[in-house]
Design a binder for these strands. Structure first.
Lengths: 245, 245
DNA sequence: CTTTACTAGTGTGTAAGATACACTTTAAAA
DNA sequence: TTTTAAAGTGTATCTTACACACTAGTAAAG
């Protein structure tokens, strides 16, 4: 009967599915969408490829997974190798597998996004001559499916930033309310009301206001704040607190 | 100087990263977390492995990616081959790459979750003798990192169900308000207030109330509804509507 | 035919949170 | 001392979330 046939068939296919074929091995790549914030605007770091295929075109930073590491480690290694950066917030995004996404060879790529504060890392070696920061809406056309990866990364960053305190990864340790607001305005791509924003942030009660001012922007000077990570973690553990902007 | 050295080093490594090695090719698997709802409870479908390694243990449904398909296609194929199901909602979740996750061989696995209505698919061939539905909290210990995959899937389902109308994938085409509420209570694992739930759903204005009752549960009978997908899509496009429970 | 039993169905008041909105303060520079 | 430019601050109103309890309808039992 149909079900029995299907059953036998399924068990056969089970075997087929699981007796693998060396032929079906693939190359796994990791590509990093690196977001940076320079107190004004949200940017992404791109490099001009100095190797084939697509030499001379702009692309994300990427590399291949090695047998001796997992994907998170590969992402960290790739980022470090090409930019000198380490100890950076990274998160896996999505795995891209269109058959001809890399015309040279069958490659599946796992995208990661990273968040860094541009100013604090200015001299970490990001000045590979071929690397450059681009405004989100001024990024050039990229190779393969890298544009799609960036779109996904932006969407994810937007969602995450609304419910997790990942924004602070993009700011220096000490920051002003205005910088924090600029950051959220960049991420969400819309203007926010100054008073409402400050009221909301203060009601979350996870920032420490310092007795110190940033005098570089205004005459009056703006108080500096730091994110109180311990307090935040404690609130999350104890009351299931959600950081909600 | 440091930066110049780093620059040269980086370009060298660029080459290293991109002159790939056949040695670094890996097997890519796909594993499916299949959620089902039977008008009462949320369940997952597991199979007892009839092949090594870990023969006899429970696991998710899975298989290997072939050179001729992308990951979405592989997930659809694996699901269809092992259960007979087709035309099912699926979404990519996460890529698992711990080095020893599969003790037999280096395998990276991409997890997908699928949503189906158990009743409507009772005779689609899910009765492979070794497959069974489990309540979420009664699932046995699974092989490899499959438990972790399920936890991630539950978390994702919870978040998605709050902002996208994917819940309807788990219900028959026609359903009662009580079934819809049961579904959300199962997904969120908490009781909801009947009146508030109905008020909220009605305010979303994407259901059509039929002139037809389900008489199987109560004497009075409960009106049946269908999800108006066209109306929903139109609202999303025109006003950026968000389905928010 | 009447009663019983069982689930479906319905509306409002209150509290909390979101939003809109404009003037005063501060300190450096002119 | 005046000017300038950004920082900082509070309240009223609207909207949304939540708590809450009784009536309606039908089939089955007596």
């Amino acid at each position: 009967m149909k079900i029995i046939n299907h059953l036998e068939e399924a068990q056969d296919l089970n075997m087929q599915l699981n007796f693998y074929d060396k032929e079906d091995q693939v190359l796994l790549a990791v590509d990093c969408i690196i977001f940076g914030f320079d107190k004004e605007n949200l940017k992404i770091l791109l490099i001009k490829r100095n190797f084939e295929p697509e030499k001379g075109k702009w692309s994300l930073i990427g590399g291949f997974l090695k047998k001796t590491e997992n994907l998170d480690q590969a992402a960290v290694r790739v980022l470090h190798t090409l930019t000198g950066l380490s100890d950076i917030y990274m998160e896996q995004l999505y795995t891209h597998s269109k058959i001809d996404r890399d015309p040279g060879q069958r490659t599946i790529s796992v995208s990661y996004y990273a968040l860094i504060d541009v100013e604090s890392h200015k001299f970490d070696g990001i000045q590979i001559d071929s690397a450059r920061w681009f405004e989100l809406n001024e990024a050039p056309d990229l190779i393969f499916d890298h544009n799609e990866m960036i779109q996904r990364a932006i969407a994810r960053l937007r969602r995450r930033a609304m419910t997790k305190p990942i924004g602070f990864e993009l700011l220096p340790e000490k920051f002003t309310m205005r910088q924090l607001q600029n950051l959220y305005e960049s991420i969400l791509d819309k203007k926010l009301d100054k008073r409402n924003f400050i009221n909301k942030i203060n009601s979350l009660d996870v920032l420490i206001k310092l007795d110190e001012k940033d005098m570089t922007v205004s005459r009056k000077g703006a108080y500096l704040y730091v994110f109180d990570k311990e307090k935040y973690n404690k609130k999350v553990e104890e009351d299931g607190f959600i950081f909600k902007i």
